[in-house]
């Protein structure tokens, strides 16, 4: 059975997740545009993927205003690569005036000048500015086949520039990195980060989503990887991003950051209208539940 067939199963067979509380709002601020073309990207972002366009500062501002009224706790920025959006610094300035912000970046666009601007933004707010940088290996040899030729060196340059201005990014590593989920793998990675000048290395390890480009890299989802017939209690729902967050894109508000390639996951044009229950009929939902995938920091 393939992914498409799975999605056509009747909705009633799947657990319905209510929006318990709108704690996080995600912005797909750079659309699906990215300077890299990673082989495991679950939404296949690339320099040419225009299925989602970039958001303007005015569009983000309108949703921020709405989010303020809804009592949102924190904001996340993703893409594609958020820093390809020319308005990213003013967007972050607006955001940090009303709450904490976290940017998921590959680190390559972080020039010394941008690092300086980010450091000023961070110092000027009572809220935390988090930067999350993805790396896929302990060295160029393991990272570059996934993230692209020469990317390891460039990522480390970006990380180093942040360290120089006193910003301490969270480094995220997917399980595409051999052995990183083990204790020894973790310690080895922490050593790599210390060597880079991060005296307080922060590491987050993420399971893989077997969709988009990743479907072709390793394997697609199997038929048994579904939540059909599964019942979720409140504790399980609390762990799911879709129970506590929504994803704002150029094309409207989606249930979560993961399912934006699925038209059925688009809920509304505004956040207020998007606060409705959602049926977990997608294979990625299986990863969220079974592997405890959490997009938030």
């Amino acid at each position: 059975m393939n992914l498409v067939q799975l999605e056509r199963r009747p909705i009633g067979a799947y657990p319905q997740v209510p929006l318990v509380a709108l704690d996080s709002v995600w912005f797909q601020v750079a659309g699906t545009l990215c300077n890299l073309e990673c082989t495991h990207c679950f939404i296949s972002s690339s320099p040419t993927n225009r299925s989602f366009e970039m958001m303007t500062e005015a569009e983000v501002a309108a949703h921020l205003e709405e989010a303020r009224g809804l009592g949102v706790r924190a904001y996340y920025f993703t893409g594609g690569e958020p820093f390809l959006n020319k308005a990213m610094v003013p967007i972050l300035a607006r955001t940090l005036a009303q709450g904490p912000a976290c940017v998921l970046t590959n680190g390559i666009p972080i020039t010394a000048r941008l690092a300086g601007e980010l450091s000023r933004l961070s110092a000027g707010s009572e809220y935390s500015l988090e930067l999350r940088i993805s790396i896929d290996g302990y060295d160029a040899q393991s990272n570059d086949p996934i993230r692209g030729e020469g990317s390891f060196e460039k990522i480390l340059l970006g990380v180093g520039r942040l360290a120089e201005v006193g910003l301490n990014p969270v480094i995220t590593v997917t399980e595409a990195c051999e052995g990183v989920a083990s204790r020894a793998g973790r310690l080895k990675f922490l050593e790599v980060l210390r060597a880079l000048g991060l005296s307080q290395p922060r590491l987050k390890i993420l399971p893989l989503l077997r969709m988009g480009a990743e479907e072709k890299r390793l394997r697609p989802y199997q038929a048994h990887e579904t939540l059909a017939g599964v019942e979720l209690d409140r504790a399980a729902i609390d762990k799911l991003e879709c129970g506590h967050a929504r994803m704002v894109t150029k094309k409207g508000v989606y249930v979560c950051p993961i399912l934006i390639d699925h038209p059925g996951a688009r809920l509304a044009a505004t956040l207020t209208e998007s606060l409705v229950p959602f049926g977990l009929s997608y294979s990625a939902c299986y990863t969220c539940h079974a592997e405890g995938l959490s997009c938030a920091t």
Partner: peptide
């Protein structure tokens, strides 16, 4: 108020969120 083990740090607890909890 809603969860015994939720962490409310100053730098990641927005004022609109506090107002929502109070409401």
């Amino acid at each position: 108020p809603r969860r015994i083990n939720e962490f409310l740090w100053k730098s990641n607890t927005s004022t609109p969120f506090v107002e929502r909890m109070l409401r």
